[in-house]
């Protein structure tokens, strides 16, 4: 055997180190995904999975309003939640970064994300306590006499949006704050020095510089929101199902794995599309 050069033996060792992670990802992510993609082309007929290759599931998705409406609902809710969360979180992050004294900033930030530490399932449930017919809001309104009948606040799209927004405002406050705090104060000084007023400075300097952070946060919001089953299932009621709920329905009641797989692929394509749209702002860098 010829002796390896130092570079060659280093590389051989490096393959050994990266291999476990690669193999894990291949075996438990890539292969299952390909498997699912293949299954989406099969179908389920009279209780049996038939391995006949066709696009029936995808055709059905576009033809059956009950399925297609799921994607529309998902996209609508996700977009509303993403925009709403950014609009609510940005000012809060700005206030923490600019208006709160330096030594209290970390505390303010911890406070802003404290409810993260409730269990995800419980977080949606706790909105039920607030929004349900005999919940806090209705009881308050009844007590002060603003309404005579309890309002239907839970089990609809608004409740889902509130539940999601609650979660993502915390997440985005964190990412946007991290972005704002990295900016050198000299940018603002330079802009002011060159004659920009506060609004112009924000519009032309601060906002563009924090845009990558916002986009990263927004993309994360989009991905997590569109794929979530828990929040709409607890808060959304049965009228406007989102795609993950429909996928779970295929699994549960009908055991239609091929259809669930096809819907998952469609969900995945929606995320990929969002990624392509945001890609130029998203980066992973090494220090």
């Amino acid at each position: 055997m010829p002796t390896l050069t130092l570079e060659q033996s280093d590389r051989r060792n490096a393959w050994g180190f990266v291999a476990p992670a690669l193999l894990w990802t291949l075996a438990f992510f890539v292969v299952p995904f390909l498997f699912m993609a293949a299954m989406s082309l099969w179908s389920r007929q009279s209780g049996q999975i038939v391995k006949a290759w066709n696009l029936d599931n995808y055709v059905a998705f576009f033809e059956k309003a009950s399925l297609f409406k799921g994607l529309v609902n998902s996209l609508e809710i996700t977009l509303i939640v993403t925009v709403l969360s950014v609009l609510l979180a940005y000012p809060l992050a700005w206030i923490i970064a600019e208006r709160v004294p330096k030594r209290f900033q970390r505390l303010a930030l911890i406070m802003a994300v404290l409810p993260f530490w409730t269990s995800y399932v419980v977080r949606s449930y706790s909105w039920l306590l607030v929004l349900s017919k005999n919940g806090v809001v209705n009881q308050t309104l009844l007590t002060i006499g603003l309404v005579s009948e309890p309002l239907e606040l839970a089990s609809n799209r608004t409740a889902t949006v509130i539940g999601f927004t609650h979660f993502f405002v915390m997440l985005l406050t964190l990412t946007i704050y991290a972005n704002l705090i990295q900016l050198s104060p000299n940018y603002r000084r330079a802009a002011a020095d060159l004659g920009a007023n506060a609004f112009q400075t924000f519009r032309h300097v601060i906002l563009p510089l924090t845009l990558p952070g916002i986009m990263t946060g927004a993309f994360l919001t989009f991905v997590l929101c569109i794929g979530d089953y828990v929040t709409p299932q607890i808060l959304g009621g049965n009228n406007e199902l989102v795609l993950p709920q429909i996928i779970m329905l295929q699994l549960g009641r009908r055991a239609d794995f091929p259809m669930a797989a096809a819907l998952s692929i469609i969900l995945m394509l929606a995320v990929t599309l969002a990624y392509v749209l945001c890609a130029r702002w998203l980066k992973i860098e090494r220090a």
Binding site: F29, V223, M248
Partner: peptide, 23 residues
């Protein structure tokens, strides 16, 4: 390789679960 390793981050947990479940 880097792309492959971080790819699961961009896929919904539901899809990861479903893929594993089918396998």
């Amino acid at each position: 390789q880097r792309g492959l390793l971080i790819a699961p981050m961009t896929v919904s947990y539901l899809i990861i679960a479903l893929g594993l479940l089918t396998v």
